[in-house]
Amino acid sequence: MGHLQRTILAGILAFLPLAITIWAVGLILDLLSGVGRPLVNALAGWAGMVVPKLTDVLTSDTVAWALAIVTTILLFYLLGLLTRAVIGQRLLGLVDTVMNRVPVVESLYRAVRQLLASFEARDGGSQRVVLIEFPSPQMKTIGLVTRVFTDVDSGAQIAAVYVPTTPNPTSGYMELVPVERLVWLDWTASEAMQFIVSGGTAAPNSIRFNGNTPPPPAG
């Protein structure tokens, strides 16, 4: 029984990484498919008026699912091209203006925009990845500095640190930490996310756990 249990456990541990990867990829593909499905349905309706038999083909589950994914990726690509163009930047500015005037939605939209902007690459691709003391001074966890404030009473620099959770980095919490208590890492945000999602198994070979270094320049 001991041999059987150990062998089954070894099989489960060998299968889990593949299963989790397949689940994550499937979830992403389903999200992409959901975005593009209305356009595929509209295309199927238009094609049905020209070639009626195409409607059944385009609306079949597998074909519609695949076409929706391709359509969504193409839309994101075109949106990226538009964003990098002058007219696209003006349109995004117009969207920001409209969204910032909608009650309730305005606060959520602005918060998401600021959070995403804080994760953009800075200083040649490095990110403000830090270690903070949690849950005790002898233990630390990974965080991402999203903003630095000034204490109105003491003038000290206070960092807003987003702390992602394992294995889902989209859920987490905020910590306000004095800048001098942070340990600044030379990791990128991608490396930090890989570390978090993998439970620490995927990480650079070295880490600065103790001591402090000056924060990177704001940018």
Rank of each mutant, 00 (worst) to 15 (best):
G2P: 00
H3T: 12
Q5P: 03
R6F: 15
T7S: 15
L9D: 15
G11F: 08
L18V: 13
L18K: 12
A19Q: 10
I20W: 06
I22K: 11
I22A: 15
A24K: 12
L29F: 15
G34Y: 07
G34K: 08
G34S: 12
G34R: 10
R37L: 12
V40L: 07
N41G: 04
A44R: 00
G45R: 04
G48W: 02
G48P: 01
G48M: 05
M49R: 10
M49L: 12
V51I: 13
P52I: 06
K53Q: 15
L54V: 06
L58S: 02
T59N: 02
A64R: 05
L67I: 06
T71Q: 07
F76L: 14
F76K: 03
F76T: 03
L82V: 10
T83W: 03
I87M: 14
G88L: 05
R90F: 02
R90D: 01
L91H: 07
L92T: 06
L94M: 07
T97A: 09
T97R: 12
V98P: 00
P103D: 14
V104N: 14
Y109M: 09
R110G: 05
V112L: 11
Q114D: 08
L115C: 00
F119Q: 09
E120I: 04
R122C: 01
S126F: 01
Q127W: 00
E133G: 01
Q138M: 03
Q138T: 08
M139T: 10
T141H: 04
T141A: 13
I142T: 05
G143V: 07
G143W: 03
G143T: 05
V145A: 06
V145Q: 02
V145G: 01
T146C: 00
F149T: 07
T150V: 14
D151C: 06
D153K: 10
D153V: 10
D153F: 03
S154Y: 04
S154M: 04
S154D: 03
Q157V: 01
Q157H: 10
A160L: 13
A160Y: 01
V163W: 04
P164E: 02
S171R: 09
S171V: 06
Y173V: 04
M174Q: 08
E175Y: 11
L176H: 12
L176I: 04
L176R: 06
L176A: 10
P178V: 01
E180S: 14
V183A: 07
W184H: 08
L185S: 13
W187G: 09
A189Q: 00
E191P: 02
E191G: 10
A192M: 14
Q194L: 14
I196R: 04
I196A: 07
S198D: 11
S198I: 06
S198L: 11
G199V: 08
A202N: 12
A202V: 10
A203D: 02
P204L: 13
N205P: 00
S206C: 01
S206E: 06
S206Y: 02
I207F: 10
T213L: 14
P214G: 13
P215I: 09
P216V: 07
A218N: 15
G219C: 02
